[in-house]
Amino acid sequence: MSKPLVIAGALAALVCVIPYLVADRYVFHVAIMGCVTLILASSMNLMLRVGQLSLAQVAFMGIGAYASALFSMRLGWPTGLSLVAGGGVAMVFAAVLGPAFLKIRGVYFVLLTFAFAQAVNLIFQDWTSLLGGNNGLYGIPKLELFGIRLGKPGAFYGLALAVALGWLALMGALHRSRVGAVLSSIEENEDLTRSLGVNVLAWRIGCFALSGLMAGIAGGLYAYYIGFLSPQAFTFHTSVNVLVINVIGGVASPLGPLIGSILIVPLPELLRDVEEYQLLAYGGILILFLAFFPRGLIGFLAEARQDAAGRRLGRPIWRHSTKRTK
């Protein structure tokens, strides 16, 4: 590991323990939401690794959130089981849609996933009998794991942090393994990869399903933490937020979303006194990064360093120009 990356890692570790040092209810709240956002951003990062920008992740998050809440409320399942099962439902959605969706590439895939997320959100709003519609779904029980009730924010943060870091560790291992090499190869040159006998579509579907599971579990954590669900939490704005995190952190490494989340999630809290300028800062940062650091902070840190093969590390969020569709 290069020195800048080690320093970045150490800083990240410090940021993760800050909530325990401060032990303030509000800081815990921001940190828990940060973990949920990080998992969602990481699920988008996984799809970007195979070269596809999915705006459907927020829909999978919503599906996971509503499913796990309903499993425990309507069917009376234990909350821990419901959390995992909710993620499973989101994964099934992704796996079933995958074969049709992932044949579409480039900008059309983005439009497709955008339309899917919009439709899912409108269904959340319209299906009032089951999901509560815009009035929301109330009365979600507190999460209980192995008989321990995670009611206190400190305890819940511990779980959320463990899940988030566990995912990141898994993504990191995947990144360095042969699987990661296959994924990078799919992103870099799909035709060549296919010519080597790799079933590209199957790999893509696998990534989509795994990213759906991740997003669904993020949704479940959100549902049990907030205790109330409304379609407002799963709109296009959430998608844009995790996209900005990926742009700023960088998409070349699983650490990108971590760095992006640490920088972006507390931003509204830091700009509280100048509330009307929050949105402007947010958009301005996005434009500045696109214009000057298209590889994100991870890419910027690794820019000078080259790997053994002499390749530059880090890549822009999108390498290719127009691809032929159908």
Binding site: G106, V110, L286, W318, T322
Partner: peptide, 12 residues
């Protein structure tokens, strides 16, 4: 002609 970056720029 760099479709995705252009789209993200339009979001910004």
């Amino acid at each position: 002609r760099s479709e995705l970056n252009g789209m993200i720029m339009s979001l910004g």
